[in-house]
């Protein structure tokens, strides 16, 4: 038996809106630790890793580890029917073939339940090694989204370079080139507007903007985004989810032939 009650149901709505276009079907894994998902996009270039820790739920019951295969587009459709202030409860029986999403309005005057069929998914699980990244950039998530959107009007790829001068986002396309440099900025009153660059070694990597733009759909989840780079590793774009966990996107770089 599984029963997860999330007072801030909008978090789950935002998570689904962030990942449904990147991944079609995925297994949600429930354990004592929390509610998690790891899935790759169909081209095996990008990976989504979600963790919502059990402590973040108002009520978390998971009698045994359970893996539930879901079509993320259908799950997003159902969660879209929840109000932004609704409390969302996810329920499933062990060995059952469906999952129920229950939505309660804050004053309990409207209660809805939506039952969705589960599916068998052969998921490939990748082992993501713990890594020390050469450069970690923390910046406003809206700024990161703006940069990815702007650059994708010029080119298809972005070169992200971190030096002691700052972080540079560059692209080139048929009409010309673009470079956007952000410098470290810790002297703001509002920590959510800070840009913080931790660099061990200068690093420069090339990524497809199409995926970066897809990741920025998670912008409503967090005011800050963390971009972790190492020369021999996929980039990690991380959005923290309140006090509960994270939504991380991994993207393999483009490499010179």
């Amino acid at each position: 038996m599984l029963e997860l009650r999330l007072v801030q149901g909008s978090l789950l709505k935002k998570v689904m809106e962030s990942i449904k276009d990147l991944v079609n079907d995925a297994n949600f894994d429930c354990s004592a630790t929390g509610f998690s998902l790891q899935a790759m996009d169909s081209s095996h270039v990008a990976l989504v890793s979600l963790l919502l820790r059990s402590e973040g739920f108002e009520h978390y019951r998971c009698d045994r580890n359970l893996s539930m295969g879901m079509n993320l587009g259908n799950m997003a459709k159902m969660l879209k029917c929840a109000g932004n202030d609704d409390i969302v409860t996810v329920k499933a029986d062990d060995g059952g073939d469906c999952v129920t999403f229950m939505f309660e309005s804050p004053n309990q005057d409207k209660i809805a339940d939506f039952e969705m069929k589960l599916m068998d998914i052969d998921s490939e699980h990748l082992g993501i090694p713990e890594a020390e990244y050469e450069a970690i950039v923390r910046m406003p998530s809206a700024e990161f989204a703006r940069i990815c959107k702007d650059l994708s009007t010029i080119g298809d790829t972005v070169v992200i370079s971190v030096t002691k001068e700052g972080v540079k986002f560059s692209t080139r396309g048929d009409i010309g080139t673009a470079n956007i440099v952000l410098r470290q900025n810790t002297s703001v009153d509002k920590p959510e507007e800070a840009t913080i660059i931790e660099m061990e070694t200068p690093v420069s990597l090339t990524f497809a903007l199409r995926y970066m733009n897809s990741f920025t759909k998670a912008t409503p989840l967090a005011s800050q985004v963390t971009v972790s780079l190492s020369s021999e590793l996929p980039v990690v774009v991380e959005y923290k989810i309140a006090e509960m966990g994270y939504l991380r996107f991994y993207l393999a770089p483009k490499i010179e032939e």
């Binding site: 699980h125 990748l126 021999e232 991994y250 483009k254 010179e256």
Partner: peptide, 14 residues
């Protein structure tokens, strides 16, 4: 020209 590589180049299946 830069070539897109897959994640499996970096992360192994478990």
């Amino acid at each position: 020209k830069a070539m897109q590589v897959a994640l499996i180049v970096f992360f192994a299946h478990i």
